[in-house]
Design a protein around this nucleic acid. Structure first.
Lengths: 203, 203
DNA sequence: TGGTTAAAGTTAACGCCGTTAACATTGCAT
DNA sequence: ATGCAATGTTAACGGCGTTAACTTTAACCA
């Protein structure tokens, strides 16, 4: 389909791109299909040829986000187990700090309910998988405890996700100490928080 | 001011209560000032005598949420450092699971930007304070490492917040294993994730 | 006690929004 | 060449947050 005065020719892609920059700059609350259509020189209902509704458009943006997050995580060096795990944590938090609005859309839960957009769920799982593989790797190399993989993975994911969320929402008091903070926190999960002299470590 | 046909008499409080149950049952996206006024038998602009705008109403609901969260955390037994810390984690995640929609409002970040509602920020800090006190206590008793308090606190807060968020949004695969999962994860942060035989623990 | 003032309601209106129905134009394949 | 499917259009519905202008009531004070 070529571009004419009538047929736009590339609406789906261009709407996606424009919406993505709007979300990144102003958050998903700033997305309006009518305004989007206006900026694209097109009538609002035209967008419905390409997106079922506003939520589906946002879901596509979130999918993009999960894909780039996954790429960032895949780029972490996996030579050494410890630095791989810390590297994953740093990359994860760094992504959230670079794209806070996109990150909030991806993990908002309010705007994009789980189960409603299968491709979105799948994209989220794919990103999660990178972290799980890294943990599994660390276990196989004998670096991590032989605890259930799901437990270790959930702990790592929870930690970096929570830190990301608290950071971008300004809940953590004090100045911007990233990425030192992320590294220190990740190390805590690895090494533990208790004073060794106190008790037997729970194995 | 008494209740007459004209003057409602208790609008502020009743609007708050109704809105709170709507948020709890259907999420903050379901809050509409017009619909709220309709259900209260009042015109929509009447609500503006009591709330500056929709966002201010939501901020009040979030404040309620932080106050009850704080109460739940304060109820945790503080006798033993270890069980106090794990107890805080369990109570925190339990609250998020009981009130997922309220929790999302409190920590959404999208709907209620930090800094716009001072009383909200203050309520969040007050809840955070309970966790920080528990950590500080554990340090003073020599149970926790002598790492910077802000680091230990941020780690604990991140972990429970991340786990809560991932749990209520259905990101963690597998069946509902709570609260075992929360206890196991909290213990991991205390004891560490690495196999002891591998390396010196980073002190 | 009576009159003023401020609080707390009212209706009407503006300009957005998402979404649908009904219709028009265009590209592509037979 | 023609017919169909894809991709646009305009018009309209109902809802929303919010503001302006006005009205009723309560409270207070001379």
């Amino acid at each position: 389909m070529a571009r004419t005065a009538y047929h736009h020719g590339d609406l789906h892609q261009q709407a996606h791109e424009l919406a993505l920059t709007i979300v990144r700059e102003q958050g998903d609350g700033a997305i309006s299909l009518r305004a989007l259509a206006r900026q694209l020189g097109v009538s609002a209902p035209a967008l419905y040829r390409h997106y079922a509704d506003r939520e589906s458009l946002l879901a596509e943006l979130a999918i993009s986000g999960f894909q780039t997050l996954r790429q960032h995580l895949l780029a972490v060096d996996q030579q050494d187990s410890r630095s791989a795990l810390i590297g994953i944590g740093l990359a994860y938090v760094a992504f959230a700090r670079e794209e806070p609005n996109l990150y909030r859309l991806m993990f908002g839960g309010r705007v994009l309910p789980r189960g409603a957009h299968p491709r979105l769920d799948q994209a989220g799982l794919a990103a999660f998988q990178v972290l799980e593989d890294t943990v599994a790797n660390g276990q196989q190399r004998g670096y991590l405890k032989a605890a259930p993989l799901s437990l270790l993975t959930a702990a790592a994911w929870s930690l970096v996700h929570g830190l990301s969320q608290l950071t971008i929402d300004g809940h953590l008091p004090g100045p911007d100490t990233e990425p030192q903070l992320a590294a220190g926190i990740t190390a805590l999960l690895l090494d533990g928080s208790i004073e060794r002299s106190n008790k037997e470590p729970t194995p």
